[in-house]
């Protein structure tokens, strides 16, 4: 399956919380490929794509974090005006909802990589593939 595993980390809103996560990962030699911080008034959830999911999860748990995993989808987006719109339009036709999305740090040739979280992941992958978009498999994304 062309899903990508995202790690989520529960964080209280307090100084140093984020820094501790990045330090723990750095010390374990884990490379963060993409990240996004979802913030509410009370707490935050840090979403990460890393090069070694299992190791990162283990290290984070050992350091006392509450770690979750979510299936997300990495899609190549043509780096030109309307590139993203084309994708969203095709999803909208299929009535697939995007819960959140964020961009990858690196690019893949002429393409940007966007991480999507859908309410119907499998259907979204099918639909995007049929419409001619490139959905990147997990292994490819982790090792970019």
């Amino acid at each position: 399956m062309n899903k990508v595993e995202q790690i989520s980390i529960f964080l209280e809103n307090k100084p140093g919380g984020l820094e501790f996560v990045t330090r723990v990962l750095k010390d374990a030699g884990i490379n963060i490929r993409a990240l996004s911080l979802a913030d509410t008034s009370d707490f935050g959830v840090l979403r990460l794509i890393v090069n070694d999911v299992e190791k990162a999860k283990r290290i984070l748990k050992e350091n006392g974090f509450t770690v979750g995993r979510t299936s997300v989808v990495a899609v190549l987006v043509p780096d030109r005006p309307g590139g993203l719109h084309g994708i969203l339009e095709s999803l909208s036709k299929e009535k697939i909802n995007v819960e959140y999305m964020y961009a990858f740090v690196e690019r893949s040739g002429e393409h940007a990589i966007i991480i999507f979280r859908f309410d119907a992941t499998d259907r979204a992958i099918d639909s995007l593939t049929k419409s001619g978009f490139t959905v990147l498999p997990g292994e490819k994304v982790y090792s970019l």
Partner: peptide, 10 residues
Amino acid sequence: FAETGEVKVL
């Protein structure tokens, strides 16, 4: 949290 890791669940 482990199931979904989602903000809305929390």
